[in-house]
Lab assay of single mutants.
Amino acid sequence: TLFEALYDYEARTEDDLSFHKGEKFQILNSSEGDWWEVRSLTTGETGYIPSPYLA
Rank of each mutant, 00 (worst) to 15 (best):
K24C: 09
T1F: 13
E14Q: 11
A5N: 00
S51H: 07
E23M: 03
Q26R: 04
L17R: 14
T43F: 08
E32C: 14
S30E: 09
H20D: 03
L28C: 06
Y7W: 12
H20L: 11
E10Y: 08
E14K: 11
D16S: 14
R12E: 08
W35D: 04
G33V: 10
L41M: 11
G33C: 11
T42D: 10
L6Q: 08
L17Y: 04
S40N: 14
E32M: 13
F25E: 00
D8P: 03
S51P: 10
V38M: 01
K21W: 03
S30F: 07
L2H: 07
G47R: 03
F3V: 07
F3T: 04
F19P: 01
G44P: 00
G47I: 06
L6E: 11
Y48A: 02
N29S: 12
Q26M: 11
W35K: 09
P50R: 10
F25S: 00
Y7I: 08
L54R: 05
S30K: 12
K24V: 13
W35G: 01
N29R: 03
A5M: 05
A55T: 12
V38N: 00
S51D: 03
E14L: 08
P50Y: 15
Q26P: 00
L54Y: 08
E10M: 09
G44W: 03
T1R: 11
S31N: 11
T13E: 08
G47M: 06
E45D: 07
T42M: 09
I49D: 00
Y9Q: 02
N29H: 11
R12T: 14
L6C: 08
W35N: 07
P52K: 15
L6A: 07
Q26K: 05
W35F: 08
E4Y: 09
A11G: 10
F3E: 01
L6W: 13
E45S: 07
E10I: 13
Y9N: 02
T42C: 07
L41C: 09
S18P: 04
Y7T: 06
D34E: 10
D34P: 08
W35M: 10
E32Q: 14
Y48K: 14
A11M: 03
E4N: 04
L41P: 04
I49C: 03
A55P: 08
D34R: 04
N29M: 05
S18H: 05
T1P: 13
A11W: 15
E10N: 08
L28Q: 02
E14H: 10
S31K: 08
T1I: 12
E37L: 15
Y48S: 04
E10V: 13
R39N: 04
H20I: 11
G44Q: 05
A11Q: 10
L2C: 07
K21G: 02
F3L: 06
N29T: 06
E4W: 09
Y9L: 09
L41S: 03
F19G: 01
L41A: 15
A11S: 13
P50V: 03
R12Q: 14
